[in-house]
Design a protein around this nucleic acid. Sequence first.
DNA 1: GCCTAATTAATTGCGTACAATATACTAGAA
DNA 2: TTCTAGTATATTGTACGCAATTAATTAGGC
Lengths: 158, 158
Amino acid sequence: MATPTKNILLDEQLCFALYTASKRFNHFYADALAPFKLTYPQYITLLALWENSPMTVRELGSHVNLDSGTLTPLLKRMQTQGWVERNRDENDERQVNISLSQKAIDAKLDIFAHVNSCMELLNMDAETYANTRDTVNFASDRIKNADPKKIDYTGTEL
Amino acid sequence: MATPTKNILLDEQLCFALYTASKRFNHFYADALAPFKLTYPQYITLLALWENSPMTVRELGSHVNLDSGTLTPLLKRMQTQGWVERNRDENDERQVNISLSQKAIDAKLDIFAHVNSCMELLNMDAETYANTRDTVNFASDRIKNADPKKIDYTGTEL
DNA sequence: GCCTAATTAATTGCGTACAATATACTAGAA
DNA sequence: TTCTAGTATATTGTACGCAATTAATTAGGC
């Protein structure tokens, strides 16, 4: 007798919970960042740069987990809007150094204050917030280290 | 004396944890679904249809949280690849009914079996998996109900 | 110095996401 | 019936996200 295949229900999937929550946060930040005309990926790019500027495109990408295919056009838009500057490295012309503009340096505290105000709407105490984040990061590590390419497909040909 | 603004560090943000985990799952499923030439959004569309077919575009969208701007082209690609059929409703021609193709009905158990095999790579027992999902969904509800448009920006003009 | 392998960004192509708009159709009021 | 408000999908425009490729530059071996 064949082993019955375990059913998969959409609303029970962790992937779908993460996918939905991530999109909702994207929408949340779209509204929260509207006064600054920033998108969510642009905001996390600024967060990374506020911690460490300048960085090469590669370094920046390793912090925000995005590659040059995403970052290059994103950074060009941010440059157009005056948030960052892009300069070829003088010593190694393969590299492009991304640095904060004065506007970005000046706006930091205003953005932090406004985002912090918006975050209070979540009604999550610091402990719940931290526990949730740690739980997500725990799962995230597991996902990162799993490689489905190792499992070869043995079912019917398409 | 002014209140000091609370600092915001990228790696401490729940939004970034969710954003990263969601992207990693997307990558995980890209590999897991490669034998079937399905993307992750296409897969959750199939999950919804396997539970209930046919559905109108609108009904489907309410299950997977996507609007027609995303679904219309996605469903056209899935139709081209033989996963779904699209038919105008005879009674109400505004609606388009999306139904599973025979190929999708036949492939269901093969896809479930392969995805389940891949999921074992996560090394998460059922309880941890369920707790993580519930924790994410709890936060997701909070994010959904928060509306940053209610907070007006009082900082410096841009 | 000269050739080759490695490194870094940029580009290309495809597939989402979603706001805003347009189009087609339906149903209800006058 | 005709006008109108509402509904359902499609289209348009902008911005990711990432695999794959290309182009430019650097560094290492000889």
